[in-house]
Amino acid sequence: MTEPIRLLLVDDQALIRLGFRMVLDAEADLEVVGEAGDGAEAIARAATLRPDVVLMDVRMPGIDGIAATDAIVRSHPDTRVLVLTTFDLDEYAFAAIRAGASGFLLKDAERHELLSAVRAVHRGDGVLAPRVTRALLDRVSGQLDAGGPASGAVADPTAELTEREREVFAAIAQGLTNGEIAERFFLSESTVKTHVGRVLAKLGARDRIHLVILAYEAGVV
């Protein structure tokens, strides 16, 4: 039998943690192994519990979700962080993604969306709430237009990619799903998954979200 996905819940509100625990623990393939009320506690508990996925609040007293995400990802690269927030996309949430989070989901997401996001992040996929995807892309491209942090000379990340892999890379940067990429290029979804895996490996990216950021920073899209 496959081991359940081990989860750490991080939020400064106990009732919110309780609500998430009730939903997640009801699933046979998910197990909440611990909770934390702030970033410092999250870092400590991640070190001792070694969860597969951390569900991370952004705005917390003391060490916030951004710093905690950065510390956890640096110390435990196999642990994935899924950011949960009440805001569509604010400075804090975007910074958390840049710090290494593998997903971004709003706290008012439907139950099935939450469960799907946890499983997707665990298997290495990036997750963005549907109404956040466009905002993230606009944010990164806006930095390029404004000469912000994402601007400047960046080496072409596609140099090691095949022509098809470059096409898939660009499609990912536009926010397309595997199914949409398959439809665009007349490929099977399994073939697309193979291409995505190769792109991730060649570019040294953690997941799709970081491919999106890398593509926009390099001006690929």
Rank of each mutant, 00 (worst) to 15 (best):
E189L: 08
G147R: 08
V83I: 15
L176Q: 12
L15C: 00
D156T: 06
D29T: 12
G152S: 02
A117G: 13
A135T: 10
L8S: 02
A153F: 14
L144S: 00
G148W: 08
E180C: 04
A201M: 04
G175D: 02
P130D: 15
I213L: 15
L49K: 10
P157C: 12
G142R: 09
D52T: 09
T177R: 11
G34H: 10
A95K: 15
T85W: 01
L82F: 10
T177P: 01
R59V: 11
H195C: 04
R45G: 02
V73P: 00
G62K: 12
A159N: 01
D57R: 05
T69M: 04
R17G: 10
R111Q: 14
S188F: 00
G179D: 09
M60V: 07
L105S: 06
V58Q: 10
D90Y: 03
I5G: 06
A205H: 00
E183A: 15
H210M: 03
K107Q: 06
V140S: 08
A218G: 01
A28H: 13
F169S: 02
I43P: 05
G39Q: 05
V58S: 11
A36Y: 08
E91C: 00
V10M: 09
T85I: 01
P149Y: 05
E183C: 06
V121N: 00
D57V: 07
E27P: 08
H122L: 00
G100Q: 08
Y92N: 09
L115G: 07
T194G: 14
R123T: 15
I172F: 11
G219R: 11
R21H: 11
L144C: 03
D29V: 11
L214E: 12
D108P: 00
P61H: 04
D38L: 10
R17K: 14
D29R: 10
P157W: 01
G179V: 12
G148F: 11
A28N: 12
H122Q: 13
R123N: 01
L214R: 12
H122F: 10
A109I: 04
H76C: 01
D88R: 15
R198E: 14
V83H: 05
I97T: 06
T177H: 01
L176Y: 12
A155E: 14
T158M: 11
G65I: 03
L128H: 04
L9W: 07
L144G: 03
D64Y: 13
F169D: 06
A26V: 08
A46S: 15
I209T: 11
M22W: 04
L214P: 05
Q174E: 15
K193F: 02
A182E: 03
R17I: 09
R198K: 14
T162A: 09
A99F: 05
L82E: 01
V168C: 05
L84D: 03
T69H: 04
A71N: 08
F94Q: 06
A182T: 09
E3W: 01
I181F: 06
P51L: 02
V192Q: 03
G175T: 07
